[in-house]
Design a protein around this nucleic acid. Sequence first.
DNA 1: TCGTTCCGATACGATTTAGTTTCGAAACGG
DNA 2: CCGTTTCGAAACTAAATCGTATCGGAACGA
Lengths: 210, 210
Amino acid sequence: MIQTSQTDESVHAPGRKRDASRDAALCQAALEVLAEVGYDRMTVDAVAARAGAGKATLYRRWADKAELVVDAIGRMKARPVLPDTGTLRGDLIALACHVHDADDTFRTDVQAGLVSGLVRDAKLRAVFAEQFVAPRKAVFRTLFDRAVGRGEIAPVPNFVLLSDIVPSMIFHQLILTGRPPDAAFVITVIDQIVLPLVGAPVPDPLRELS
Amino acid sequence: MIQTSQTDESVHAPGRKRDASRDAALCQAALEVLAEVGYDRMTVDAVAARAGAGKATLYRRWADKAELVVDAIGRMKARPVLPDTGTLRGDLIALACHVHDADDTFRTDVQAGLVSGLVRDAKLRAVFAEQFVAPRKAVFRTLFDRAVGRGEIAPVPNFVLLSDIVPSMIFHQLILTGRPPDAAFVITVIDQIVLPLVGAPVPDPLRELS
DNA sequence: TCGTTCCGATACGATTTAGTTTCGAAACGG
DNA sequence: CCGTTTCGAAACTAAATCGTATCGGAACGA
């Protein structure tokens, strides 16, 4: 973070106050540009222009593009969604296929835009893990615990590994095809990989697909 | 591809011949730089310098960086490895943990370096799929077929999905941590996900890890 | 009112990179 | 030989982009 002179109370603070709404506007603009063109195609000028702000206003708050993005991601409101459909399968599908909501579509685009930057920026990986991976894993945990509580499945020993399957397959598909997979793909992964592994019932038994 | 005047036989061809060794040197240099700094940090100057060639020599062959990389990837010799350890588990581990060979380490680094470019370049995705995904999938197919032939497992209906699990988890781990996962992680994926799904024997039954 | 700071806008310098051109030397063919 | 093409090397142009500086105006506090 850059100059936080605003927060320094010891010295008298003359002059115009910083407009907090500019922080929010710049962060939002950063996320939008990030979602549209990806991390390394994203320029500081584009962010400032999108926010209707000058570059000086941006650089008064963040030292460079990396800090701006890290802060913008960190300020994103965490996903509140926690499905409760009554079955593990229904919950998993609801969680993974939340693309109905425009807000979640935006989150997905942001994640896709981050991919190119994640490989080399450790700070970006940290905030990505905190904002996207951890909440999702927590929801997974809740879903499985509830399924156990219902007696739907037995307790899962290797939960951490299991909770990574669906996101992994989605990411892999994203990288290979250039865009996020559709709901059918996700449901297939859930029905043919996740649910069989935990011994949960699958509605339509595996058909011959090979 | 650029000017292929060299291959045009109809016109008389005076002057010095193109040195085919420069093609190979430039492609090899491109792969090395790609493996070291990644697709979007890779510069044409660095490739030419590494190859001990002038940029004119490079641009005489390829129109731009994208074409160079696509061609360089396309010319990589496909992996010849096809493990045969006697068991499906042994084969899968041997295939996924082939990091003993320096040649395979290089292939891994090239793939990691490509990640940042794959998201937006369709041609890159195509050649990536052809050179890395397809051969790997073919080997997987052979491994499973042999296991079926040995009576080790029953025929697998959803083979395509299964063959993507290990690469997906590896890629996911790479993106989240910044480097390829170690062998222990890969073995865990094989033992706790892939083998249980196909009903193959796992040496050490799942311990409580949660 | 007056000095200070923030604001948006824009100009600016510095750096990086892509792709082109030029140069002298060397290889080829007639 | 002699014209043509390739070679490595390097200069060059053009564009993108970063981060800073400047400007007139507005918001604050004393």
